[in-house]
Design a protein around this nucleic acid. Structure first.
Lengths: 133, 133
DNA sequence: TTACTGTATTACGCGGTGTAGTACAGACGG
DNA sequence: CCGTCTGTACTACACCGCGTAATACAGTAA
């Protein structure tokens, strides 16, 4: 697992890390039960503070993507439902509404956006790293 | 044109205003050339500071959605291209990548997301107000 | 015991948000 | 011309959350 962070990005470092792992899991590049690089090791590699990595991992735990065993490390978790059905839907809608607002102000049509969404989803599942949010 | 702001929202007030006008224009509820409520008047209505409304309007000008005529007011602008083609695309992709990240961590499939995007786009174009970003 | 692991606390800089006040300038109707 | 509406431009301030960092504490296992 190779994590890359972009210095001049508007995206926070911890978010870049979390996003890349999130996508790696979704794409199957990281398997259930597999151990993630340790907080300190990854921090050394990226030359950042261990807490920054810890925060990224904490977010992933919160999302149910990874699990932690104190003193042992972080591991890719089995998919489980973290939120209620309505909460899950509410959060998806929130993200979509944001996309809609941006699309409108950029002057894109529904179809243009849908096509591009389809395209980028496919690319993400083929394992291409990307960080934005 | 009726603007509603939600107090306990994580979205900034100026953003809620901008989003609602953005959508109203996209949905055709506000026509080209139509005058927006004045900064001071809308501020009085919503019981907020005029500067907050001005900031929302400034964002819309920046996005090319409305135009301003000093001393007269803000008016819905004719659609025009603000960004270069690549920059426009870059911004769209950025929003979509964000959606993809959220969708993955929520465990939604590509198809589920696409369906929902289609649905919410349709709803937005029917003129239902919404604020998120 | 040693050397790994994660955890918790605290602190600090920065920027976004919102408010407030004040002043200036263009538009327009009487 | 005057009054009153419009937007514009500053400055200042308080607040708060984000992002990062430094440091110390605690669990795990060879």
């Amino acid at each position: 697992m190779q994590i890359r962070i972009v210095a001049g990005s508007n995206a926070a470092i911890y978010k870049q890390i979390a996003d890349q792992i999130n996508r790696a899991v979704a794409a199957g590049d990281l398997e259930v039960g597999q151990m993630l690089p340790s907080v300190r090791q990854l921090a050394r590699e990226l030359v950042i503070n261990p807490n920054t990595v810890a925060k990224a991992y904490a977010d992933l735990v919160q999302a149910g993507i990874v699990e932690t065993q104190a003193g042992r490390g972080f591991f890719v978790a089995k998919r489980r439902q973290v939120y209620t059905k309505t909460e899950r839907m509410r959060r998806l809608d929130e993200s979509i509404q944001s996309l809609i607002n941006h699309s409108f102000s950029l002057g894109f049509s529904t179809e243009e956006v849908l096509d591009r969404v389809r395209e980028l989803f496919a690319k993400a599942l083929r394992g291409v790293p990307e960080s934005t949010s």
